[in-house]
Computed example of a mutant assay.
Amino acid sequence: MTEPDETFYTQERWQNWLTRVEEEELDPENEDSARLLLNLQDDAAIAVAKIVSAYDEDRLDEEEAIDELARVREIVLSETQFEDEEKRMLIDGVQTSLVCVFYAAEEYIVAGTAEDGTVEDFVRAAASAEAEDDLDAALGYLVQAGTRVIDGEELDMSLVEDLEYGLVSEWVNGLDSLQSAMSDPEVVEEDE
């Protein structure tokens, strides 16, 4: 297999974000801190959106797209080495949000867009599954929702207001980043 001509994401890029997080005084209640974490998350979601777009435009075949997603996922979801417990937890939250983004992109590439339901239906089903402690089903529903987001259906973030805080709300947060990335896949500048 040949290496794709495009580089979608690098270890160095992820490390630059982690270095910024390490250097900053982070307070999740502070807008600048929250923006830094959101930019970090959006940046990874943009890489995923670019891989999906390259697949849709036949610049990558299915195998290449899946391999590229796996490479980016390995970078982004690897364990962080922060001394600071709180920063480690904040990055862990970002990584948790992105899990669903990677699975949704893979599902979209391998199986296409989910047919039976809307984004809202899948989010509500995921919330119900989470309430019954069936996290695998919850993730599965949100992966289906994610394929529809990739296909252009809108994720209405007012749905999140009804959700209990937990994995489903984190995963939906990731899908929101994916939605933004699909509509405007411009790179987030690391020095903003």
Score class of each variant (00 low, 15 high):
Met1His: 10
Pro4Ser: 04
Pro4Asn: 06
Pro4Trp: 12
Asp5Gln: 12
Asp5Met: 10
Thr7Ile: 10
Phe8Arg: 03
Phe8Trp: 09
Gln11Val: 07
Glu12Gly: 08
Asn16Thr: 11
Thr19Ser: 12
Thr19Pro: 10
Arg20Gln: 15
Arg20Tyr: 10
Arg20Thr: 11
Asp27Tyr: 08
Glu29Leu: 04
Ser33Ala: 01
Ser33Val: 06
Ala34Gln: 15
Leu36Asp: 14
Leu36Glu: 13
Leu37Cys: 12
Asp42Val: 15
Ala44Tyr: 03
Ala44His: 06
Ala44Leu: 08
Ile46Met: 13
Ile46Asn: 03
Ala47Asn: 07
Ala47Tyr: 11
Val48Asn: 05
Ala49Phe: 13
Lys50Trp: 08
Ile51Lys: 00
Tyr55Leu: 02
Tyr55Met: 00
Tyr55Lys: 01
Glu57His: 03
Glu57Thr: 04
Leu60Val: 14
Leu60Gln: 07
Asp61Gly: 09
Asp61Ala: 02
Asp61Ser: 06
Glu63Phe: 12
Ile66His: 12
Ile66Val: 15
Leu69Pro: 01
Ala70Cys: 09
Val72Lys: 00
Val72His: 05
Val72Thr: 08
Glu74Phe: 09
Leu77His: 06
Ser78Phe: 06
Ser78Cys: 00
Glu79Ile: 01
Asp84Leu: 05
Glu85Lys: 03
Glu85Asp: 03
Glu85Trp: 11
Glu85Phe: 07
Arg88Ala: 06
Arg88Asp: 01
Thr96Gly: 15
Leu98Val: 05
Val101Lys: 14
Phe102His: 06
Phe102Asn: 04
Phe102Tyr: 09
Tyr103Met: 01
Glu107Thr: 12
Ile109Cys: 13
Ile109Arg: 14
Val110Phe: 06
Ala111His: 12
Gly112Pro: 12
Ala114His: 06
Ala114Arg: 02
Glu115Gly: 11
Glu120His: 02
Asp121His: 06
Ala125Glu: 14
Ala127His: 10
Ser128Ala: 10
Ser128Pro: 10
Glu132Met: 15
Glu132Lys: 12
Glu132Gly: 11
Leu135Val: 13
Leu135Thr: 05
Ala137Tyr: 06
Ala137Gln: 09
Ala138Asn: 01
Ala138Met: 05
Gly140Cys: 08
Tyr141His: 14
Tyr141Phe: 11
Tyr141Arg: 04
Leu142Asp: 04
Val143Thr: 15
Val143Tyr: 15
Ala145Val: 01
Ala145Asn: 06
Thr147Ile: 04
Thr147Tyr: 02
Asp151Gln: 04
Gly152Glu: 13
Gly152Cys: 14
Leu155Thr: 00
Asp156Tyr: 02
Met157Cys: 00
Met157Asp: 00
Ser158Val: 07
Leu159Gly: 07
Glu161Asp: 02
Tyr165Met: 09
Gly166Asn: 02
Leu167Asp: 12
Leu167Tyr: 08
Ser169Met: 14
Glu170Trp: 15
Glu170Val: 15
Asn173Val: 14
Asp176Ile: 10
Leu178Tyr: 08
Gln179Glu: 03
Ser180Arg: 15
Asp184Cys: 10
Pro185Gly: 14
Val187Thr: 09
Glu189Leu: 13
Glu190Leu: 15
Asp191Gln: 02
